[in-house]
Deep mutational scan, measured.
Amino acid sequence: MFYPNSPQTSPQLTQIPYGQQYAMMQRQIQQPYHPFATTEPQARLYPYHYQGPIQQEQGGFITQQSTAASPQYVQMRVTPVDQSIMSGYPNQTANGSSSSSFNYNIHPQQQQQQQQQQQQLRHHAMPVGSVPLQDDRYRKQLIVNYLAPDVTSTDLHELFSRFGELDGARIIYDKQTNMSKGYGFVYFCHAEDAKEAVERMSGYEFHGKWLKVGYSTNPLNIVPSNSSPYVHAGSRGAAG
């Protein structure tokens, strides 16, 4: 039997160049792979992502010199942007860049009308829970959420009447099932009393439920100042 490094198959040491006398086997001759043993700084910083320098080929596509990437890492192929796409944008300079302001050559009167329309939209648009300043009635009506099913309009009136005089209180019921929808409205005579009720009743436990109280901004629920107070009856038909 002959071994790869046996004296019968191995040459004389004098015939082997210096430095390879003890590297006779194939696994010894093959050098191990060192990912950080390279002179390129990109490979030292990113050993798993770097795959060699990027070269520009004919046709405008950018390719990489090395083989496919590892399945664990996804390499994105980048193509140059066609400058003709950006030619339609206004205020574009000769080098292809555009300024931040756009001039669509709008007539001054049209621009003024658009600004007025935007101001009107901001004036009428009102986020949930906010209180408008032009109508004091919005500051007097509250919406009470997360009410228990057994709470009546009379219970709601008695709960909030300790903060001040009320114009009314009612629970909203479903017309088909005649069941409470879980929320109601309270109408105060003074805005200061309503503000105190919002601050003190939010998070209050009532009939096993934690109440959420806020201003009601729905104009359909506003009680006119010259109208008669609501009837605080315990029956659902009268309260709904």
Rank of each mutant, 00 (worst) to 15 (best):
F2T: 04
Y3I: 04
P4L: 10
N5M: 09
P7L: 07
P7V: 11
Q8C: 09
S10R: 10
P11L: 04
Q15D: 07
I16P: 06
I16T: 04
P17L: 14
Y18S: 07
Y18T: 05
Y18M: 11
Q21T: 07
Q21H: 09
Q21F: 15
R27W: 15
I29A: 02
Q30K: 13
P32I: 08
P32R: 03
P35I: 14
F36C: 04
A37L: 10
T38N: 08
T39W: 15
Y48K: 02
Y48W: 12
H49C: 09
Q51H: 13
Q51P: 11
P53R: 04
P53K: 02
Q55P: 10
E57P: 10
G60N: 12
F61R: 03
T63H: 10
Q65S: 08
Q65D: 11
A68W: 15
S70M: 10
P71A: 05
Y73A: 08
V74S: 06
Q75I: 15
Q75E: 09
Q75L: 15
V78G: 05
V78C: 09
V78R: 05
T79W: 15
Q83N: 07
I85E: 01
I85Y: 06
M86F: 08
S87Q: 12
N91E: 11
Q92R: 09
T93P: 11
A94N: 08
A94D: 08
N95C: 06
S101N: 09
F102D: 03
F102C: 06
N105D: 07
I106M: 10
H107S: 04
Q112Y: 14
Q113R: 11
Q113G: 12
Q114L: 10
Q115P: 10
Q116I: 14
Q117L: 12
Q117M: 07
Q117K: 06
Q118H: 10
Q119T: 05
Q120K: 07
Q120R: 11
L121C: 11
R122M: 15
H123N: 06
H124V: 10
P127I: 14
G129T: 09
G129Y: 13
S130H: 07
S130A: 09
V131R: 06
P132S: 12
D135T: 03
D136T: 03
R139G: 11
Q141R: 00
Q141W: 00
Q141S: 00
V144R: 00
N145F: 00
L147F: 02
A148C: 04
P149E: 02
D150G: 09
S153T: 08
L156A: 07
E158Y: 13
L159Q: 01
S161D: 06
F163K: 00
D167K: 01
D167C: 04
A169Q: 06
Y173G: 01
Y173E: 04
D174G: 01
K175N: 11
Q176R: 08
K181W: 00
F185T: 00
V186D: 01
V186M: 02
Y187D: 00
F188E: 00
F188D: 00
D193H: 07
K195H: 10
K195F: 12
E196H: 15
V198Q: 08
V198A: 04
E199M: 07
S202I: 05
Y204K: 04
H207I: 00
H207V: 01
G208M: 02
G214V: 00
Y215W: 01
S216T: 03
N218F: 00
P219W: 00
P219S: 00
I222Y: 13
I222A: 02
P224I: 05
N226P: 06
N226I: 05
S228F: 14
S228H: 14
S228G: 11
P229G: 10
Y230L: 06
Y230K: 04
V231D: 04
V231G: 09
V231N: 07
G234R: 10
G234Q: 10
S235M: 01
R236V: 02
A238I: 08
A239D: 05
A239G: 13
A239R: 12
